[in-house]
Design a binder for these strands. Structure first.
Length: 196
DNA sequence: CTCTGGATTAGCT
DNA sequence: GCTAATCCAGAGC
């Protein structure tokens, strides 16, 4: 079943945890790509120095201030894209970054987009995942509860709380007090996460 | 295996 | 002008 607004309209860390084991589905023409989410990170509020919303609302980050369940995709390091899903109520800027996915459907197309065949190297990082699923900034601001190109599904994959590991977020050493927050979540022993 | 530097550009100061 | 929610190739061990 497709994830609805109320799934995303909760505390960001809760959504980040709940997204593990859910499926991200992408439709390109008549082809379906999908993957099991295995790694996420939470970015929330005004005080979080690692968040784009920390300095207030801008043209780029405006969607983070909107309703939950929308895509926020931005260019990082001049070369890669990062895909996020907005969370929480309107005017509270927050989102969950999808860091890694276990590819399930559409392997052929995913391999083509990535230019590699090694399974564990297809979607094991936020930039890799966007490349694999052909996500770019054109798809930012989509309502993921309504879109026909991109949405999330619960397919009954069960994740026990004991299978969820917490860690510091990656690449945010500049974020002062917030750099050590344990707002990264991933599935224990899953070989598709971005780091071991 | 680990470590390091370069690629490349929008967005903010 | 500076630098980032990253990735990869190449060097060294």
């Amino acid at each position: 079943m497709k994830l609805t607004r109320q799934f995303f309209n909760r505390k960001t860390t809760k959504v980040a945890r709940a997204l593990l084991g859910k499926f991200l589905v992408r439709k390109i023409g008549d082809k379906i790509l999908s993957g099991l989410i295995v790694e996420t990170e939470a970015y929330q509020g005004f005080a979080d120095k690692a968040s784009h919303a920390h300095k207030g609302k801008t043209e780029r980050n405006a969607v983070m201030f909107g309703p939950s369940g929308f895509s926020y995709i931005y260019l990082i390091y001049g070369m890669y894209n990062c895909f996020n899903i907005t969370t929480e109520k309107e005017n509270y800027p927050a989102a969950v970054l999808i860091r890694a996915v276990q590819p399930v459907q559409g392997l052929e197309l995913i391999k083509k987009f990535r230019g590699t065949n090694k399974l564990e190297n297809l979607c094991s990082g936020p930039g890799k995942f966007c490349q694999a699923f052909n996500l770019d900034r054109d798809l930012s601001g989509l309502d993921l509860t309504k879109s026909k190109k991109l949405w999330l599904e619960d397919r009954g994959f069960l994740v026990k709380p004991s299978q969820i590991k917490k860690a510091k977020r990656v690449g945010v050493d500049y974020a002062g007090l917030y750099k050590d927050k344990l707002w990264r979540f991933y599935l224990k022993d899953n070989k598709f996460v971005s780091k071991k």
